[in-house]
Amino acid sequence: MTMKDLNKIVLDIRERQRIKPSANDRPAASWIGKDLVDGEIIDSLTIIFRTSGCYWGCAGGCTMCGYVYDSAAESPDDDDIHSQLEHALKKASDLEKMVVKIFTSGSFLDENEISRKSRENILLRLKEDDRIAKVIVETRPEFVTDQTMDDCMDLIAGKPFEIAVGLETSSDKIRSESINKGFSFRDFVRASEIAKVRGITTKAYLLLKPPFISEGMAVNDIIRSVNDIYPYADTVSINLCNVQKGTLVEMLWERKQFRPPWLWSIVEILHRTKSAHPDIVIMSDPVGAGSQRGPHNCKICSRDVADAVRNFSLTQDIRVLESVSCECRYLWEKIIELDDYTYGAPITV
């Protein structure tokens, strides 16, 4: 299988989806949460801008990503982006201190999504708000250049700034032939280094259990990835692959050829990586945990184990991971043992 084949399949799926019409002056989503910043738990405002969409996703893109369907039918103009920002900030009017996390379902730094002008407007607006302790923007690494980084640092002017990159895995093979991500580990390292020299921190998103990968290999892949990225990432956030609409992953899942990761897998990963690297922040928000489309254990324990994972992410205390147990863990252990030898038909129980 070549990458081209995979992209073709993903693109075919994309083309069968309908994009729902939506208002351009509202963000795709925004919400208030909690986040760990410099060892302190503070409020966070997450904004997902509605843009023309991820260029990579529009051309096919990642096998698990359905965010591309959040993009606007017609490109929002700078006024729209401004309205989106203000709409989101209104939600945070009661907060005293917060971190702001900016996503676009693509790259914040891609000027085809967020024009230079809008980028300036946004960063300036955020700089001016003293309640905002830190700004994090998500981007593919190709947009992390000396130029863009200098621009951002100029605008944000001393406020802690972080780029977040969806590296997914340190394995180029998996990133290419399973995820179809379209950049290499070296691209990430380069971006991280460009940021670092400017005092910009880097957050790496990893993806637990991309398609075709057994449960055990997926666990090992993340553990290996954490080791690999340790020098380049200040924070590691592990996303648990869930089944998004209009993705290859969904197509596989519907045919029982994909199962989202077990929550025991992330428990195991967090336990082992945090023990090995106590100095970096390793977090995971098990989105959709407990549902069939999200990471799940059995019906009895999924909620508790997901809570423990969230709790760990805020506290970085591995003891919270040791506090959960359930009989289904034996099944998970057995799956780890056997799933490597199913030769293309993942265990989906």
């Binding site: 399949i9 075709f212 045919r255 994909f258 993942p346």
Partner: peptide, 9 residues
């Protein structure tokens, strides 16, 4: 190995 949904050369 890959699941049957994916065509392969």
């Amino acid at each position: 190995a890959i699941p049957p949904v994916i065509l392969h050369e």
